[in-house]
């Protein structure tokens, strides 16, 4: 899959933003006044910024409002509704927090909404039967762990961050190991794609056109996988190892900032790999993965 910057930014920052909103809603920290404003502004900047980034992926962003209508079948529609509902509920919670009142029930509902939003985002990918690497329980599990873990880091929940980062790193490793063979195990190959497997081995002889096309640009991304193994290690170090290292010292804001920057860079790399490594079965028609 083409690793589009808009979608990478969207999943990374909205994940972190809703992760932070989750901890704020649960009351892990209960800031008020100016500090509440700063916390919520940070969470909203990431969550809303991420959502806005996703609209750059659209061909006709001016019609985005229509995406709220098909919640019965579409995970993207469910995500849009969950995101906006959560932002409204947490907006009410945030408003009261400014004046020192923490509406526990509203915050709790908002925290569940934040989880639901990240879950619906992950299901957009996990539902894709055409991308065997994504169609697995590890996709939502990893999105949720990364979101809540990153949120815990932002919210300064250091012990919880350590715990969730360990879980996320283990889960990511498991996802990579099992994901690498999932296309082969899916049963979809050039033989089933063409239905010619009963005759013999199928090889793409001539593509339908001399140039490229939308399908090849969107779904076939081979070059980027060349350095995947190195990038995996870099991503693990940036996302989890370095932030844990920085937070191990006596807490100060400079180190916390370094931890946060390292984590964001790491998650961006993870998301780049999430798309760049994903093989869409349509590539088989072009003899590519």
């Amino acid at each position: 899959m083409h690793p589009a910057p808009s979608v990478i930014l969207f999943t990374t920052f909205s994940g972190l933003g809703f992760g932070l909103l989750f901890w704020l809603g649960l009351g892990a920290i209960t800031p008020s006044g100016l500090s509440a404003f700063i916390w919520f502004a940070l969470a909203y900047a990431m969550a809303v910024g991420g959502l806005l980034a996703s609209t750059f992926h659209l061909g006709r962003p001016e019609r985005a409002i229509k995406a709220f209508s098909q919640w019965r079948t579409s995970w993207l529609s469910r995500e849009a509704i969950a995101a906006v509902a959560t932002l409204i509920i947490m907006g009410i919670y945030a408003l009261f927090s400014l004046f020192g009142a923490h509406l526990k029930l509203v915050g709790f509902i908002g925290a569940i909404g934040a989880i639901a939003t990240v879950f619906t985002t992950s299901m957009i990918y996990a539902q894709m039967k055409t991308v065997p690497r994504w169609r697995h329980w590890t996709t939502p599990a990893l999105f949720l762990t990364l979101s809540i873990g990153g949120g815990a880091l932002f919210a300064g929940q250091i012990a919880t961050t350590f715990l969730l980062f360990t879980a996320a790193a283990a889960l990511q490793g498991y996802t990579w190991i099992t994901g690498d063979s999932r296309l082969a195990q899916s049963g979809t190959d050039m033989k089933t794609a063409t239905g010619l497997g009963h005759i013999g081995d199928v090889r793409a002889f001539e593509p339908p056109h001399t140039g490229t096309n939308y399908l090849m640009r969107e779904f076939i991304h081979v070059v980027g996988r060349k350095h995947a193994q190195k990038l995996r290690m870099i991503a693990l170090i940036l996302s989890f190892a370095l932030p844990v290292f920085f937070l191990n010292f006596h807490f100060n804001h400079m180190l916390a900032l370094l931890a946060v920057i390292s984590h964001i860079a790491g998650v961006l790399t993870l998301r780049w790999l999430f798309f760049a490594e994903a093989e869409h079965v349509v590539g088989l028609y072009y003899g590519k993965r």
């Binding site: 992926h57 061909g59 006709r60 229509k66 039967k129 055409t130 991308v131 349509v282």
Partner: peptide
């Protein structure tokens, strides 16, 4: 009504 999100093309195995 199409917003050009491309998700339907992602979901189609046939291109």
């Amino acid at each position: 009504d199409c917003i050009g999100c491309g998700l339907c093309a992602w979901a189609c195995p046939y291109g």
